[in-house]
Design a protein around this nucleic acid. Sequence first.
DNA 1: AACGCTACCAAGCAAGCGCTTGGTATTCAA
DNA 2: TTGAATACCAAGCGCTTGCTTGGTAGCGTT
Lengths: 214, 214
Amino acid sequence: MRESAQALAEAPSQLSSQQLIGALVEQGLLTDPASPRGRLLFAAARLFEQRGFARTTVRDLAAEVGILSGSIFHHFASKEQILCAVMKEVITLASARMRSAAENAGCPQEKLRACIQSELEAIHEQAVPGFSILVTEWRSLTEESQEEVLRLREEYEQIWLDAIVAAKCPGGAPALVRRLLVGALSHTYSWFKPRNRGLSIPDLTDHIFQIFTP
Amino acid sequence: MRESAQALAEAPSQLSSQQLIGALVEQGLLTDPASPRGRLLFAAARLFEQRGFARTTVRDLAAEVGILSGSIFHHFASKEQILCAVMKEVITLASARMRSAAENAGCPQEKLRACIQSELEAIHEQAVPGFSILVTEWRSLTEESQEEVLRLREEYEQIWLDAIVAAKCPGGAPALVRRLLVGALSHTYSWFKPRNRGLSIPDLTDHIFQIFTP
DNA sequence: AACGCTACCAAGCAAGCGCTTGGTATTCAA
DNA sequence: TTGAATACCAAGCGCTTGCTTGGTAGCGTT
């Protein structure tokens, strides 16, 4: 793996998706995508995002990874725990990605732009499968699970708030601006398709950035 | 009802919620809320909004209006048809409300402000129960139902697009701006509680207006 | 008085759901 | 060579789900 080592040396804070995942797995922060549990989580992220949590059955999920439905409960205690685990993986990976993107930005304006683009990539590229679940399926979690995920999410939101403050966004309190952005960005899952040659993710980022900055 | 007649004469385009509903019922555009079907739709709007469509059972819904679950299917062919009917009622009422609000606005800027406030009121006040379902439960509709609701929704969206164009919002195409607004506004259902003395709907409207206008 | 219409009940069916149980094949360390 | 751990199968349990069926009570019309 001489190429990857070289890339790492050249741009240590801009890892490729593969490299970032590998690093997080080694630190024990992320489940190995090649492990049975990892494959299950990956398939769950896809199905929950596409069909929704309630409309995805454990039989669907089992079929997706090629096992029987009962075997799922060798890895997870309940269907809800799968959703919770997916969300934890999602927010962990998204946090690492966005911190990297924010750190590499020069001025405050560029930092905010990087946050917007990072979240759009998380939603629309294969970067963070299942990211939109964080918003759409939040109510499907038990209160205990919500607290668990929320604790992991705090770091992610802090990066956002810092970026919004630094960029001096109009529209009141930074927390309010962030909440409006959460809605606007997550909803893009329903209508924006990067395959449309008409509008790329950087294009979309530009437009949103223009609206939310003075 | 001398008072209401007087109010009608004084401000014919600013009907109260009750009056507006009454007028729409008489035109056959809305189901009478006092009828069995109307009470069922109202209860469904509340439950679908609070718990989500999939997590609401027909038994929940029947209990809410005080009948047995089987009796529901005397009024509707399927659970999905209830959701479809709710959405049609929602968009019909919301359209009438917003057209009234937009027509009463003076300048283009005020028109956009009125649209924002009207949609926020639809989401958070009792004005249009179940409005947020239009976004959150869209995927729970069959494709045929989606087309039906979409047809009704076109008028509503046209009012929005006109307002966005007239207000000269930055951020690219009006349709894009509207989509970002849909996300930002509908997501307020998850975090904004008008009971909070800290932030009222006009306050929130101001902040959003400030962000989305030049 | 007879009819038809609306609104509902009582009972339950068939299917699908999340999840459990007891057992087996494979792997790998002691 | 044995024993423990992992990953899974085969079968199905108990429950909930949306929905059906056959019947009834009340009401307004003719």
